[in-house]
Simulated assay, not measured.
Amino acid sequence: MNGTTHDVRLRAEQLIGERRPFVTATVVRAQQPTSAHPGDTAIVFSDGTIEGFVGGQCAQNSVREAARGALDSGESVLLRVLPDGAPPFPKTSGADVVVNPCLSGGAMEIFLEPTLPAHVLSLYGDTPIADAVVEFARVLDLDVVRSSAAEAVTEDATAVIIASLGGEEALTIRAALDAGVQYIGLVASRVRGAAVLEQLELTDSERARVHTPVGMYIGAKTPAEIALSIVVDVVRAIRLDGVSVARNDPVATTALDPICGMTVTINADTPHLEDDGVDVWFCSPGCRHKYEKT
């Protein structure tokens, strides 16, 4: 493992601890005269910032675009970057093919692997059901945050489960709704759950976010079975309904290169010039030079 790869892995561990989403980009194939080599690695953020090396400026533009897609989908992708005029390459499942008109020649394959923060499950209550929820959630790599204070609802929670079987349940539901949590589960019978919700003035959209009785119906009776039904329904909501915490990642600003038509990410290093008071952005100094000559 070379020094750069080692540095990228250390940086990745730091970002995971900070709960910051990123993409690890690794060059797996590179043909001359590309400047990248197999094994070159970088970290790519949602705003287009790249830490590390996966090729020159032209290749980086393609990587930035594909990395944003990987972060949005949460799925890894193999990016094939071909120079303009290369023979057509069939698109296969899990692979994206882009023709980069400013690539100097050769082809590249870059594996993009997104890393997103683990889903956070905020859990309220000190009961056998709550204890069992913790055990199941941790097996599934959910980050569990336990609290007894309603006002401590975390804004980065994907789901809030109230398994206190009493106490300030209505207050906790309201705090979770105000924090923007999309999945809120109350452990209660239908009758008691309805009574708790009657204490709140809920809009239709807010009511849709509160699940009571919480959990997928499996005929659960024991605390462990009830906890299993709860965690199963949280996973269903995440995987099938798209429930997640709203990410406030910096969004990249992009522009269209008027020469080659590429979408470029605007940052401090992006070539540009001012034309009649309008900023014009380019994928490379070569395209900027062509624009200046027109």
Score class of each variant (00 low, 15 high):
137 A>C: 04
221 K>A: 13
66 A>E: 07
288 R>F: 04
238 I>G: 01
259 I>M: 13
209 R>K: 11
199 Q>L: 13
48 G>E: 07
78 L>G: 04
235 V>C: 14
103 L>P: 07
75 E>Q: 15
166 G>A: 10
118 A>E: 04
145 V>R: 12
127 T>Y: 04
214 V>Y: 03
154 T>E: 08
47 D>P: 00
109 E>K: 01
162 I>R: 06
255 A>R: 05
86 A>Q: 01
31 Q>H: 11
25 A>G: 06
284 S>C: 15
193 G>A: 14
232 V>G: 08
101 P>S: 07
193 G>T: 11
148 S>E: 12
206 E>Y: 00
124 Y>E: 06
53 F>P: 02
271 P>C: 10
134 V>Q: 09
147 S>Q: 06
176 A>W: 14
136 F>S: 05
213 P>D: 15
180 G>T: 02
276 D>A: 10
230 I>P: 03
157 A>M: 01
150 A>W: 11
155 E>S: 14
238 I>C: 01
163 A>E: 02
104 S>C: 13
155 E>Y: 10
247 R>P: 10
189 S>M: 05
181 V>W: 14
148 S>G: 10
167 G>M: 06
85 G>S: 04
136 F>P: 07
147 S>F: 00
25 A>C: 05
198 E>S: 14
189 S>D: 09
274 E>I: 14
31 Q>A: 14
248 N>F: 12
173 I>T: 12
40 D>G: 05
264 V>I: 10
61 N>E: 15
103 L>E: 11
189 S>L: 10
279 D>K: 12
223 P>K: 12
67 A>H: 09
30 A>C: 08
240 L>R: 13
286 G>T: 14
34 T>R: 12
133 V>C: 07
212 T>N: 05
32 Q>A: 14
18 E>I: 02
34 T>D: 10
274 E>N: 00
267 N>V: 03
174 R>N: 14
192 R>C: 08
258 P>I: 10
146 R>M: 05
242 G>S: 00
88 P>D: 11
170 A>C: 02
252 A>R: 08
209 R>T: 03
48 G>M: 01
132 A>V: 13
223 P>R: 08
29 R>W: 06
35 S>F: 10
48 G>L: 05
258 P>Y: 13
267 N>W: 00
203 T>S: 15
124 Y>D: 03
161 I>W: 02
